[in-house]
């Protein structure tokens, strides 16, 4: 009889784990991808002089494709990272561009990149062409990494990150007492004829807990701090925390 109980236990654990993995593996994978902030290459107006027929110089505007100056990378300053839509997600692509005049933080593009492509202006870790990325806009990890990249003061971000982490821990720790209560309730009610309900009840409870954790921790969102599970981001940001 011992092996039967062992078999039941392994059976329940294994299939619950596989079920949960089937539901959350994709989210976990999304989470570990590098996050980038992007801006579309649009036509901007640049100041320009034009000499009229009578030789006087007029102030006029000419609209040309332009990107933020911080998007230019590489040792010659002519390389731009852009995000390209493919069937298995967003892939990072590298363009060599020729630049023209620069004004109020934007630089004119004379060739190499078309309007409408999404140029990357910030990322939360080192990124290389060909990597799959997800666009999260200016969330705190991207802001932190780009700030540290440019050597600006990152203490403001660090405070915010610490606050976020605390709420993470509260979420995870909070779940444990609630589960204990649930198990006790389950034991009290699944008695006698209802005994077989115990295993399915436990499985349903695990799924509920995971859904809750997924909403609170996994999904990148406004107030949701996903630092706890993000191994990659966690490692790179740890030095700045001096944890």
């Amino acid at each position: 009889m011992k092996t039967k109980r062992a078999a039941d236990f392994i059976f329940a654990v294994f299939f619950t784990v596989m079920l949960l993995l089937t539901m959350f593996a994709e989210d976990l994978y999304r989470l570990t991808l590098p996050k980038v902030a992007v801006e579309e290459v649009t036509r901007r107006a640049f100041a320009a002089e034009m000499t009229g027929k009578d030789g006087a110089v007029y102030e006029t505007w000419r609209t040309v494709p332009a990107i933020p100056t911080e998007a230019l990378l590489g040792d010659y300053g002519d390389m731009v990272y852009a995000v390209n839509e493919t069937e298995n997600g967003l892939i990072l692509v590298e363009y060599i561009v020729s630049t023209g005049e620069e004004s109020e933080g934007y630089i004119e593009i004379t060739g190499g990149i078309l309007t409408g492509t999404l140029a990357v202006i910030g990322s939360d870790r080192e990124i290389y062409p060909g990597q799959q990325v997800i666009i999260t806009g200016w969330d705190e990890s991207v802001a932190l990494h780009t700030a540290r990249e440019r050597g600006e003061d990152i203490s403001g971000y660090v405070q915010e990150m610490r606050k976020r982490l605390l709420t993470d821990i509260v979420c995870v720790v909070g779940v444990i007492p609630v589960t204990v209560v649930a198990v006790l309730l389950c034991n009290r009610f699944c008695k006698g004829r209802w005994r077989f309900l115990k295993v399915p009840a436990l499985i349903v409870w695990c799924i509920l807990v995971c859904l809750f954790l997924r909403a609170t921790i996994l999904l990148p969102g406004e107030w949701i701090p996903e630092k706890l599970i993000d191994w990659e981001g966690w490692k790179t940001n740890r030095e700045s925390f001096q944890l």
Binding site: M18, L21, T22, A25, E26, L28, Y29, T32
Partner: peptide, 13 residues
């Protein structure tokens, strides 16, 4: 296997 190639889980089922 499980996270990077998450589509493998469908093949398991």
């Amino acid at each position: 296997l499980l996270i990077e190639h998450f589509y493998v889980l469908r093949n398991f089922w």
